[in-house]
């Protein structure tokens, strides 16, 4: 277990080290290339900035309105029928839009149910296996001026649901 955290601590430096050594062996002007790339990177951030602001404001409105609590209450009668704990539904919804929002909610879940309870563990797994659907779509597609997203959104929502069911199932197997 120590080894795992040791390895992953070294991962980023190792990747950077490898890239530089490889380029030096190929006799490339590493620093000049870095500057060129970093400049492009800054332009990229400027390009995606409007999407991020627009999305985070919308998520902020939705979160502070109490809509997620309302959804949770509305689904309370389905408790035990669904193949996953209803407490993680708001988490699954929020994770489609914003990582930081989902993390804040995850910490609430950890505080109220514990990290290794059925609910806490399902929440942990859920955030491991899903990515922010709408955030990714809006950054990736707006950067290349794509407006018609075709089947991406339905497929992404379907996958989020699958992840929810699988997380709850795997959590149950591993906890018992």
């Amino acid at each position: 277990m120590k080894l795992v955290s040791y390895l992953s601590m070294f991962l980023i430096p190792l990747v950077i080290f490898y890239i530089i050594v490889y380029a030096l062996l190929m006799k490339k002007p590493v620093f000049e290339l870095f500057l060129k790339g970093a400049k492009q990177g800054l332009i990229t951030v400027a390009e995606i900035a409007p999407s991020i602001i627009g999305l985070l404001v919308a998520v902020g409105i939705f979160r502070s309105s109490g809509a997620l609590d309302l959804i949770c209450k509305g689904l309370a009668s389905l408790k035990g029928i669904l193949p996953f704990p209803i407490e993680v539904i708001p988490l699954a919804i929020l994770k489609m839009f914003s990582s930081s929002g989902a993390n804040a909610l995850l910490f609430d879940i950890y505080r109220s149910y514990g990290t290794d309870s059925y609910i806490g563990f399902t929440a942990s797994l859920l955030l491991c296996c899903t990515e922010t659907l709408f955030y990714t779509i809006s950054i990736y597609f707006t950067s290349v001026q794509i407006k018609k997203t075709r089947w991406v959104i339905p497929a992404g929502i379907f996958l989020a649901l699958v992840s929810l069911i699988l997380s709850a199932w795997v959590a149950q197997v591993f906890i018992s």
């Binding site: 990747v15 590493v30 870095f34 500057l35 060129k36 970093a38």
Partner: peptide
């Protein structure tokens, strides 16, 4: 990362 990506 864009800088390192460019090098790579």
């Amino acid at each position: 990362w864009s800088g390192f990506l460019k090098i790579a």
